[in-house]
Amino acid sequence: MADSEWQVYGQRQVYGSPWVELWLADVEVPGVGRLDHHVVRMPRASTTAVVTDDQGRFLLIYRHRFITGRWGWEVPAGWADPGEAPAAAIAREVEEETGWRPGQVELMTEYDAMAGISDAHFRSYHVTGCTRIGEPTDISEATRVEWVSEAAVIKLLVGGEVPDGPSHAALSYYLGPHRLSHTVH
């Protein structure tokens, strides 16, 4: 079977806001034919951070998500403001959501969260060297902010207590490929 791409004949916006856009694309799918396909576009860069300290702990937030009706642990995350670099955005988000100011911000990985229907592109960072500056300034983000041991993070992941996809992806990537890539020579 030869490689083939979907042919796009046009797109029109159905809904738009500063947070999300819904588009309808007129596409031809190889072997299927022509059809309308929904596309969810995210107009701002999405960022997440795995924040660790020199004791091997992870800084997590505990919050409720009304859309899914679930409570769970998450890593700090957010969107870049217009003109703001994603690394600067995640540093700002970590500080606002946790009350800890990042020292070093290192890109770990990038991925497309739902490539079949959305252009939501995430950049996941590893943040270290944080300094406590006070209480979180964005109190809507979490009911708790805690430093959690690696063993506890693994239990949270395995136990389904990190239901947020970007948080799950960032923590799993850090615990696996990121760390392995820093130990393999």
Rank of each mutant, 00 (worst) to 15 (best):
S46W: 04
I67S: 03
I139L: 15
R65Q: 01
G116E: 11
E135V: 06
Y62E: 00
G116S: 14
R41S: 14
D36I: 03
R57N: 14
E28H: 14
E93S: 04
A120D: 15
T48M: 10
V50N: 08
S140I: 02
A113L: 15
E93G: 00
A142H: 05
Q55G: 15
Q55T: 15
E28T: 15
R132W: 13
D54N: 13
T143L: 13
R92I: 03
R34N: 11
S46R: 08
E146V: 11
E95N: 07
H126F: 06
G78F: 03
A142S: 11
Q55S: 11
P76H: 01
A45H: 06
A120V: 15
G103S: 12
W73S: 10
A77Y: 07
T137C: 01
I117N: 10
D112M: 13
T47K: 07
T131W: 14
E97W: 01
R70G: 04
G72D: 05
G103P: 00
W100H: 12
A49S: 10
T98N: 00
R123V: 09
D119W: 09
V105F: 09
R70H: 08
I117T: 09
R65C: 07
D53A: 13
A80G: 15
W73N: 06
R34P: 05
E141P: 06
H38S: 09
T137Y: 00
W71F: 06
L60R: 04
D81W: 12
G99W: 01
R101D: 07
I61N: 01
D138H: 06
G116P: 13
C130G: 15
E28S: 14
I133V: 13
V29I: 12
I90H: 08
A115V: 05
V39G: 08
S124Y: 04
T98M: 01
C130E: 10
R101I: 00
R34C: 10
T98R: 04
T68I: 01
S140Y: 05
P30T: 10
W79M: 07
R92D: 02
G83T: 08
G116T: 15
I133S: 03
E95H: 00
V145H: 00
A88L: 06
E28A: 09
A89R: 01
M108I: 11
V127Y: 03
W73E: 08
G129W: 08
P43C: 00
E93T: 00
D81R: 12
Q104I: 10
G78T: 06
P86F: 10
P43Y: 02
P136G: 08
R65Y: 07
G56A: 14
L59Y: 14
G134L: 09
W73P: 00
W79S: 11
E93I: 02
S124N: 12
I90G: 04
G56W: 09
R132P: 11
I61W: 00
H126T: 13
A80I: 02
G78C: 05
P136R: 03
Y125K: 03
A49M: 10
R70Y: 03
T109S: 08
T131M: 14
D81M: 05
V50E: 06
P43H: 04
A77R: 07
E93Y: 04
A88E: 04
G72I: 14
A77F: 09
E141K: 06
Q104V: 15
D112V: 13
